[in-house]
Design a protein around this nucleic acid. Structure first.
Length: 845
RNA sequence: GGGCGUUUAGCUCAGUUGGCUAGAGCACUGCCCUUACAAGGCAGGGGUCGGCGGUUCGAGUCCGUCAACGCCCACCA
């Protein structure tokens, strides 16, 4: 085959050229005829498509791609799909603003609805199904952009295997899994206190909480005993005194023994509440007595439940104090409440402080403090606790057998790096409630249930109407259950659809089932599940990884994957974590343009598994230089003949010594990759390669040009080592390795075999030969450098002092050494290693 | 309050079971247009391995402790 090697190899255009070629030649296409043991299946995270990809994503996905490429070259058929997470609030917000629409799930579907060119003002109300259609339109555009970036980065994804978390297939999978959970009793609904975001007006789950340090104030407030004596409590939420149901102190607190079992009266409202004892009351906090309200915080919920207290809720779903006077208030209490009705919590707090001050029940001035407050991770105002009916999936929080089973799953899973496993353990240990999966939002997978309505129009929540699997996916707000007609919707004696959608994790916890087509392609499913690896970030161990493990455990009684690889964070140069909310994210395109995909990939692959890594442009530069170096080295190694020289021509000790080093590099890189340590594999290959170019290539150059049998040995060695290096670097630098491969080989380097030690059989010499001559050559170079003269300067004589072993090794490659050093003669002495070079006086000028 | 991780040259990082004068790249200095490569090559200077205390013949590496930074968890009165 004629070699078509450019005069000046360049990175320009390689990304586009090879991306197209790989696509046309199905290089990364998954071959589903392979059996489970021949397949390596990857459960890649679907990136959120509302916005732009940032370097944090690039980091993790490139790392996974290097592992994927290694496995593919090692003979596995890699199942590597890509998903798009278009589910959830971010998309919902974008669609609302982009088109000027709002979702009203009570509206019927309008098949003819088209959005206006400009965002409609005021927003048009549309049905949920119409709304979701708009979400699809918008996210489709983003998905194209994302795919283009992934392609330019060289991810070896099978682009025919894509999914979106809101597409019909994902919805069907999600709804069916939920219905199976329901049938087995793992999903249930319950009317209970939940954490509630008053802006989004939805319940949120424990996994979506975030604590933020916020300013607050302790108000020291007097409740009153029957004899009129005050009982002081301290509270940051005086506005909730009207919902107080009890006072509580620690049972061991000597100060309050006499009060337990007695009644106290709330200030302003005059409501009688019992003084109760509970271990959770902390004698050290405040006065040691706390008021229990329904509900000010999650401790209140615990007390309320465990002490069987009444419910006196005052905050509505918008976060306001309800308009109607609560029925437990009357007289002056009702008058005081009227001052609070309609206010938000923070407004009511100020009002209460005023009123308490006037009545003399506020002792001293409120004391300013900073304290942690629970927020929805995407929310702007503190969460409230309201009572509402929600759907839950059991997660072990209230079932010790399940909790233990999940902890065992965590131990069974191979964590890379292994210390990440404790995060899972801590999360499972700390679960304090079942998984709340229903959300009062619009864009998402609907809860696939209806409820029959009785004569008074009240839904029968205990006996939901369930669709058949073959009807899925359904939207109960537009589909009608069997046995009913549309006109019966929301009518007494008729039915209603569940108005809620599922949490985004309720669907993405099923990515293995989605990509493996659990519900509609059992043949594929059996070939890929359980999968091999789940790569993901450390922040979503508590959500995505846990939920996926849970669903798989409940549904299939097996771990969803054998291994999880947890990537680190990207830190900006100030060592702050990059996140969209901090506004310090950087998009990959500019870096790809400036440093090539290889430069960006090199940087990402240099980051150790699980280790936070700074965004360092210097690393892009090094990667780019390495990529160019590979092209140039390939050009040199292939430049001596148009034909391949057989390995049998390799006879020279120096060549065989170099191959000994290379074989060791292959062994180390392979072991590293087997443990998913791509970074170590890269570092090993890189170190070896630079030594190869700096020392071996220089030493062998003259012999290679001279030709003859010794020259043939050089040519064959250069080719063999280049062949191996291209394959070692292929997982990291897919474009240049493919380019150089294409100069002299058929097929793709990415479908070539990962190098093995068998390839070196009979070709391995003593690694000491290269070491010995390289160290002598280094000394000669230093002498020339010290003399501030050119490396071309002739050397009259090299005097080597070394131990007998080193001398013996050096003599085996003496000809190569003399040529590379441009020396005429060499002498050896026994002793401590030293080299004296006598330079020719007049050679350089 | 609890847990995990990090702390090695000015910068970004290696250093696998403890073993000779601690490594790489960038940056810096000097030299070199040498027929693979000048957006390059060769060579060089630069570190009491976060502090303190242990174990050991020997510790960047093991143990204890403290500190800083990052992240996760925690019932926020």
């Amino acid at each position: 085959m004629t070699r078509n090697i450019p005069d000046k190899p360049s990175l320009d255009g390689l990304e586009a050229k090879w991306d197209e070629r790989w696509e046309n030649e199905d290089t990364y296409r998954f071959d589903r005829t392979k059996t489970r043991s021949e397949i390596f299946a990857i459960d890649t995270p679907p990136p959120t498509v509302s916005g732009s990809l940032h370097m944090g994503s690039v980091f993790g996905y490139v790392q996974t791609d290097t592992n994927a490429r290694y496995r593919r070259m090692s003979g596995k058929e890699v199942f590597y799909p890509m998903g798009w997470d278009d589910n959830g609030l971010p998309t919902e917000r974008r669609v609302q603003n982009y088109y000027g629409v709002r979702c009203d799930p009570s509206l019927p579907y309008d098949a003819d609805f088209r959005p206006t060119e400009e965002p409609h003002d005021p927003p048009i109300s549309i049905s949920r199904r119409n709304f979701i259609e708009l979400c699809h339109v918008l996210t489709n555009e983003d998905e194209k952009i994302f795919e283009a970036i992934w392609r330019s980065l060289g991810l070896s994804v099978d682009w025919t295997q894509t999914y979106a978390t809101i597409d019909d297939h994902s919805q069907r999978t999600s709804q069916r899994a939920f219905l199976e959970n329901l049938a087995r009793g793992e999903a249930y609904s319950s009317d209970a206190p939940v954490l509630w975001d008053v802006d989004f007006q939805t319940a949120v789950a424990q996994a979506e909480l975030e604590e933020r340090e916020k300013g607050g104030a302790y108000h020291r407030v007097a409740f009153h005993r029957s004899d009129g004596e005050p009982i002081y409590i301290e509270t940051t939420r005086p506005e909730l005194i009207c919902s107080c149901v009890a006072l509580v102190a620690n049972p061991g607190d000597e100060r309050y023994q006499a009060l337990f079992g007695s009644m106290a009266t709330t200030p302003l409202f005059g409501v009688e509440v019992p003084v109760v004892a509970h271990e959770l009351a902390d004698p050290e906090k405040g006065t040691g007595v706390a008021m229990i309200c329904t509900f000010g915080d999650t401790t209140d919920v615990t007390w309320w439940r465990e002490l069987d207290l009444p419910t006196r809720a005052v905050i509505d779903h918008q976060g306001r104090f309800q308009k109607e006077t609560p029925d437990w208030l009357n007289g002056s209490g009702a008058e005081h409440y009227a001052e609070l009705a309609g206010l938000f919590a923070n407004q009511a707090r100020r009002k209460m402080a005023e009123m308490l001050s006037e009545s003399g029940d506020l002792d001293g001035e409120p004391r300013q403090i900073m304290h942690p407050v629970k927020f929805y991770e995407k929310g702007d105002r503190p969460l409230e606790i309201v009572t509402s009916r929600q759907w839950y999936i059991r997660n072990g929080a209230r079932d010790d057998d399940l909790r233990q089973a999940l902890l065992s799953r965590g131990e069974e899973l191979n964590w890379v790096p292994d210390y990440m496993g404790v995060r899972f353990k801590h999360w499972v240990d700390g679960l304090n409630g079942d998984w709340l999966i229903s959300r009062q939002r619009f864009f998402g997978v609907a809860i696939p249930l209806w409820y029959s309505l009785d004569e008074d129009g009240n839904p029968d929540h205990d006996n939901p109407i369930v669709p058949d699997y073959d009807q899925l996916p359904i939207d109960p707000s537009s589909h009608v259950p069997d046995g009913y007609e549309e006109f019966q919707r929301n009518q007494p004696g008729g039915f209603m659809g569940d108005p809620d959608i599922m949490d985004t994790w309720a669907t993405s916890s099923l990515t293995p089932q989605i990509v493996g087509h659990w519900d509609d392609d059992p043949d594929l499913w059996n070939r890929v599940f359980p999968m091999d690896i789940r790569p993901q970030g450390p922040d979503i161990i508590r959500t995505w990884l846990f939920a996926t493990t849970l669903r798989s455990h409940l549904q299939h009684d097996v771990l969803p994957w054998h291994t999880t690889t947890i990537n680190g964070w990207i830190l900006d140069p100030d060592r702050k974590k990059m996140s969209k909310s901090k506004g310090n994210v950087v998009t990959p395109k500019e870096f790809i343009d400036d440093y090539s995909a290889e430069g960006v990939r090199y940087w990402a692959a240099s980051g150790r598994p699980g280790t936070d890594t700074a965004l360092d442009e210097g690393q892009f530069k090094i990667g780019r230089r390495l990529a160019i170096k590979i092209l140039n080295a390939a050009k040199f190694a292939l430049g001596f003949s148009d034909a391949d020289v057989p390995a049998s021509a390799i006879t020279e000790p120096l060549d065989m010594s170099m191959l000994a080093h290379l074989a060791e590099t292959v062994a180390v890189a392979t072991a590293a990759f087997d443990g998913y340590d791509y970074a170590r594999a890269l570092e090993t290959a890189e170190r070896s390669f630079w030594d190869w170019t700096d020392d071996y290539v220089e030493l062998v150059k003259a012999r290679a040009y001279d030709g003859g049998p010794a020259g043939e040995s050089a040519h064959a060695s250069l080719q063999l080592s280049l062949d191996v290096y291209l394959r070692l670097f292929a997982p990291f630098l897919p474009f240049v390795t493919e380019e150089a491969w294409s100069w002299w080989k058929e097929g793709s380097v990415h479908r070539a075999n990962w190098p093995t030690l068998e390839e070196f059989e009979g070709l391995i010499g003593d690694p000491g030969v290269l070491d010995a001559v390289a160290s002598i050559l280094g000394e000669v170079r230093r002498a020339k450098s010290d003399a501030k003269t050119s490396m071309r300067t002739e050397v009259e004589k090299v005097e080597v002092t070394a131990d007998a072993t080193t001398v013996g090794l050096a003599k085996q490659a003496e000809g190569d050494l003399l040529a590379a050093a441009r020396a005429d003669a060499i002498t050896y002495d026994d002793g401590e290693f030293a080299v004296v070079s006598t330079l020719a006086q007049d050679s350089s000028n």
